[in-house]
Design a protein around this nucleic acid. Structure first.
Lengths: 221, 221, 221, 221
DNA sequence: TATGAATGAGGATTCATTCAT
DNA sequence: AATGAATGAATCCTCATTCAT
């Protein structure tokens, strides 16, 4: 048989990724087997090895597919373009993230949730997996922008922080992490207790952030 | 061997739990097999079934051993006994939790971290596993106490919350969850980015909580 | 501990036999394990070996207990004592066997049914098992009596067989075997097709036997 | 190995069936394990699962192979085609069955013998096993034909039964069952007592049947 | 390239049986 | 005598992976 086009191979790999994603939706990442993917993709048993050497590579591919679909960076930039003051920007960014989390728990969220454990337990996989996690970067991009806005707000005299900057950023990162965790448990697994309102939750985060930035609330709610 | 004392059996089960814990320290919970435990404990293949029916029971036992070692509830009560005002109590509670997390990431933290994923993915196991998690309850106990203190503070006029109570409590839970997550990743797996200072982090949480409770800070830092 | 009385040991063995019988009532002979018996008898795991070396010995003991309970020989003799002519004796004997089968399918019948297969497949066990099967002998005793009655009937001129004697006896044995088989399947296992009326069936056998013995029927039924 | 022809797979399954049959010849059906078959067939441990899911499926396949080899139905039809009167047909049918039993005890007979016990003890397996037993049907087919011939004989006035039809049919079924049992024990296991002559035995059955149908014997033997 | 048969390691579990106490 | 803990053989089954065609 003749050399097959690059495009063909790419297409095949995509098919496998999609199959892997379907498998992922019904079983945990750490239980996903080559056989699951093979069956779901309708491949022959040996066939998959032409495209991926093992199940980890399939997982990495799937994770990347899922996480790069959403052009988070662009959207963040759009938001920033529209806002006038830093206070407003921060509020908008956080609310946006709340909505984003709500919209993508079942894909990005669930993956990140389970991936963390896998990667943590198999550092040797970290290299090949983490280096491709655009989404991870995206989350960090949002934090970066937040940091920028804060700096800017300080420069313009809009903010007079009562807490060191790094602590505020770490604080926000921690809170977002916790929210993501909670949302995934409730929405993806029907586990966890109580309910969660992502938007309200992020708005409240915004208020505490602004408080740490020394911004007085106009009116007590 | 003849009839053996209760103590002997208990001891044996402890040995197995310890072996399981050692296994847990080098591989994820979801990869732990009966055989791992058997080998680590130096048992014969069939031997373990006298003490535990399956790997889940071993895990539950191990988790309980780890989590019940620290008498969290008592310590929390001690703290509350010593504090005078609710503001002080809340600050103390949060700082205590920060120290507690710091001290037990490698045991309690890691377990809770991985357990969450397992239970989330296998709700059918939840019943048999979760029902024994004293620590889970303990975490909630702290939140309960916090809630009590807030209520009390409101009654005594100490607090005038600018945010609904439930939102504050959810906020605290979310933040703590995020912190735990971060700490585990950094301390247990050397994954995650940056550093983390549990105590400082919880102190900051305390400040934002008090802010939400309408307490003025004496002096801006 | 002092020497224990013979009686004690005997009692213990009986207990074990009874337990084995209870096990037998819920699972096939070939699946009965030492553990089943131990559990049912409430013994310690090692304890049973004091009384029986292996499960086969337990089975043999149980079979013997079950089969010797019914004093078939005496009953047959009683019947013969009451009858006047050989024709009558033969009819009575067969009807009696029909009732007997009906009454004891669940014990003797089921055992014989399953035992046959076991013994057939493990001839080495035959020796120890078969040699004790009093019931087997009893079935043969009935056939013997039948044979006697036929001979007697011939001598007295009551019968003028149109078939060689041995064939008649073999015929009867075969039919009885088939009936037992059928009855066990239907009554013990709810398997097999249709219904069965042991008494009617044996009466019909009686008629064909008498036919073979040259006895005219008075009136067509 | 690449895609292989249907024939190859069929051949492989046949090989496994043959191996199973060889195993069956030296141990009871209920002791046959996957491992036995694997070893006998020279397969690798996991290899057999491509062809059969469990030992029951292997057994079913083996039973079917053995039982469908002999085209019983056709042979019965041939016999019926050649006979003129019902009396003759009945005699021929029974003699044929006698010969058939004699010829196939070691295969069909032994299987049916042991299968009965297995199925009886595990009704849940009945469904998957029994539904494929063509031979079982064949035995019933012979009885059906017999019934037809009797009905026909009555219509033509050839028979004037002195016993209800159903009883006669049940009688024949019972006798045949008993004969099969006896033959298997003697020929397959060298167990059981005495000898057996299948043909003679079935001829005698024929005579008693005709007697029940009201047919006079020409001459006393 | 694709196929899928074959291999064999890995893991769960059950029991008969031994033997120290 | 009795106990029951311990052992290890035996079995079932699932998968990742190789490789001949």
């Amino acid at each position: 048989m003749p050399k097959v086009s690059e495009r063909y191979i790419e297409k095949k790999k995509e098919e496998i990724r999609d199959a892997a994603f379907r498998v992922f939706q019904r079983k945990p990442l750490y239980e996903m087997t080559m056989l699951d993917v093979i069956t779901e993709a309708g491949l022959s048993r040996g066939g998959i090895y032409k495209y991926y050497d093992n199940v980890d590579q399939v997982i990495v591919a799937m994770v990347n597919q899922v996480t790069t679909q959403n052009e988070l960076v662009q959207k963040i930039d759009q938001i920033l373009a529209k806002t006038r003051c830093s206070k407003n920007a921060i509020e908008e960014l956080l609310v946006f993230l709340g909505k984003y989390i709500q919209a993508h728990v079942n894909t990005v969220g669930k993956i990140q949730f389970e991936l963390t454990v896998m990667v943590a337990n198999h550092p040797e996989k970290s290299a090949s997996i983490v280096e491709n996690l655009t989404e991870q970067v995206a989350g960090q991009y949002l934090l970066q922008c937040l940091f920028q806005q804060i700096l800017q707000g300080i420069e313009t005299g809009e903010f007079e922080p009562i807490v060191p900057l790094e602590e505020i950023v770490a604080y926000v990162g921690t809170y977002i992490d916790g929210l993501l965790h909670k949302v995934v448990l409730i929405r993806c697994y029907q586990a966890g207790t109580g309910e969660v309102d992502e938007e309200k939750s992020m708005k409240l985060l915004g208020r505490t952030v602004l408080y740490m930035l020394g911004v007085e609330e106009k009116k007590a709610k």
